[in-house]
């Protein structure tokens, strides 16, 4: 299932836009836009999402090329980590008071 929004009927397809705010940070999804092709999508993304130095790098991805998890199966799909709190450091309390642990 792709990201929401692509209707498949518009003259220009929908692109999802990801911006790296600064060196050392990941690209983060900022929104979407319409563009006829990838080059124009990058240019439009620059004009639309980085008018105030919000980014140093941009990714654009056709919305229909994104595969997402099934939103209806949310509970079941993300069930596995539930009840496995031993995956978190706070589960281990016996080391309390011991330094650098």
């Amino acid at each position: 299932m792709s990201t929401p929004g692509e209707t498949g009927t518009e003259a220009w397809p929908l692109w999802e836009v990801f911006v790296r705010a600064n060196r050392g940070l990941s690209h983060v999804h900022v929104g979407s836009l319409h563009a006829p092709d990838a080059d124009m999508a990058v240019r439009n993304a620059r004009d639309l999402y980085t008018r105030r130095n919000e980014g140093v790098s941009i990714w654009v991805v056709p919305a229909d090329a994104v595969t997402t998890s099934d939103p209806d199966a949310k509970g079941a799909f993300f069930e596995s980590p539930a009840g496995k709190n031993y995956r978190h450091a706070v589960y281990y309390t016996k080391s309390e008071g011991v330094k650098h642990l």
């Binding site: 929004g5 003259a11 639309l48």
Partner: peptide, 18 residues
């Protein structure tokens, strides 16, 4: 730009910008 952000937000509800 604001118009375009908002059209994109509306588009996620199943209506095209066109």
């Amino acid at each position: 730009g604001h118009g375009l952000y908002l059209y994109s937000a509306a588009q996620t509800l199943g209506i095209g910008r066109e």
